[in-house]
Amino acid sequence: MPLNNLKDLYIAELKDIYSANKQSKSTTKMLAKEATDADLVKALERGVEGVDDGMKAMESILDKHGHKPSGEFCKGMEGLIKEAKHHVTEESFGDTDVKDAMIVTQYQRMEHYAIAGYGCLHTFARRLGLDEDAKKIKTCLEATKEGDVYLSGLAESEINKAALAA
């Protein structure tokens, strides 16, 4: 699809963030299975639910504009997932606390990618006067930011402290 105007770019980016979410869902599940800290496991499980919510929101918006979520493959998230899998499942860890710290690191990288994508989409929707879309996207953006802040707090208060003591 040629990107001739902001609306075309908006649709392409909606598909891209949908693809990013779709890809990150299985990796987030994998990270949850690899984690040992109970609070981290719960946070990652909530992350899977958030990804599902984001996918549903993007599907709804795309449907409203007469598009399907297919047609884009997010190479950015593909790279982040490759890194996460490598660092979490192929690295050797002498301590599970250190592994949990790595899991937080990799998951937050994926979250930050989603925050950037949702942020751009929110700006596009507002510029296009798509207030209903902007509201849905802002909900996804805020939920992702909240998850990121929670994980940072968890890392600072528990996980990194335990990894330091390893």
Rank of each mutant, 00 (worst) to 15 (best):
D95F: 07
Q108S: 11
E72G: 04
A32C: 09
T144L: 08
V149R: 03
D97L: 00
E13S: 06
K138P: 09
V88M: 10
I17N: 14
A155L: 11
G54Y: 01
L40Y: 03
E90T: 14
K56F: 10
H65Y: 12
L151K: 07
T139V: 04
D53Y: 03
I81H: 06
K138C: 10
T139R: 01
L3C: 10
K82A: 08
R109H: 15
E13Q: 11
I137C: 11
A162T: 05
G129V: 00
R46H: 11
A163S: 00
I103F: 04
F93Y: 01
Y113V: 06
I61A: 00
E49D: 13
Y150Q: 07
L164H: 04
K145A: 03
A20V: 13
L164D: 06
S152Q: 11
V98W: 02
G129L: 00
K56M: 06
I11F: 02
A57H: 04
T89L: 11
K68Q: 09
E83P: 10
D52W: 02
K85M: 15
G71M: 01
S152C: 15
L14G: 04
A43S: 15
A35L: 02
H65K: 05
A84H: 15
L9F: 08
I61L: 04
K138E: 13
Y118A: 02
E132Q: 09
D148W: 09
K85Q: 15
G71I: 05
G153F: 15
V48Q: 14
L164T: 03
G71T: 02
E45N: 15
K7S: 05
Y10I: 10
S152K: 12
T89V: 12
L80R: 03
L14R: 01
M58R: 02
E72K: 06
E45T: 15
K56I: 08
D8P: 12
M1I: 11
I115A: 12
M1G: 12
A114S: 13
K161V: 07
I11P: 00
G94R: 06
A155E: 08
A155P: 10
H65A: 00
L62H: 00
Y113H: 13
T36K: 01
R127H: 01
L6E: 04
I81L: 08
A162R: 01
A162L: 00
D95N: 10
E158S: 09
K29T: 15
D97H: 01
A125I: 00
A32I: 09
K82L: 09
G54I: 05
A43R: 14
K25Q: 13
H122R: 08
L121I: 12
H122F: 13
L164A: 07
G117F: 00
L9W: 07
Y10R: 05
K42C: 13
H65W: 10
A32E: 08
M102T: 02
E132W: 05
P69L: 08
